[in-house]
């Protein structure tokens, strides 16, 4: 094979094409996870893939396609912004999901919050917590 066919442009195009396809596959994996997983916590696990890794791959492909150095800091800022906001919103959603009992306790391997919740409920009386468990 002629080595001239593998110019730098072709290699960069191929790498960014692979990154774009893998980044789109992350979105598809998140959708499959949303449809197949049984409860909120496992769906949250699947939903993080396109938000962090998928966006990273696509921004990397974009930076490769632009062929200039000054776009990399801008893309890095966009990715770091996503990296700062996604854990906060995931924390809020997970906290609200735990409080409103949107989870299957038999599927959890450990529940580190349960002792704390039991202690807090013991101080306040168990009647409220039993009613909340039944309502799930």
């Amino acid at each position: 094979m002629n080595p001239e066919t593998f110019s730098a442009d072709t290699v960069i195009d191929a790498v960014s094409a692979v990154f774009m396809v893998v980044g789109a596959l992350m979105s598809l994996a998140a959708a499959v996870g949303l449809l197949r997983f049984p409860d909120l916590m496992t769906r949250m696990h699947a939903a993080t893939k396109p938000q962090v890794l998928g966006l990273f791959l696509l921004l990397f492909a974009l930076g490769l396609q632009m062929r200039s150095w000054w776009v990399w800091p801008v893309l890095g800022v966009a990715w770091i912004f996503q990296l700062l906001t996604v854990p906060v919103s995931a924390h809020m959603v997970g906290r609200a999901g735990y409080r409103t009992k949107h989870l299957h306790p038999e599927l959890l391997s450990t529940d580190e919050l349960e002792a704390v919740v039991q202690q807090a409920a013991g101080k306040r009386g168990f009647g409220d917590d039993d009613a909340a468990t039944d309502r799930r």
């Binding site: 980044g23 789109a24 939903a47 396109p50 696509l58 492909a61 609200a96 409103t100």
Partner: peptide, 23 residues
């Protein structure tokens, strides 16, 4: 909360489409 999570994923997909269009 499931709907909120799915809407978040939908926004991530929109962002991915914007990225691919730019690239």
């Amino acid at each position: 909360l499931d709907r909120v999570l799915a809407a978040d994923v939908l926004l991530a997909i929109v962002g991915a489409a914007l990225c691919i269009d730019m690239a």
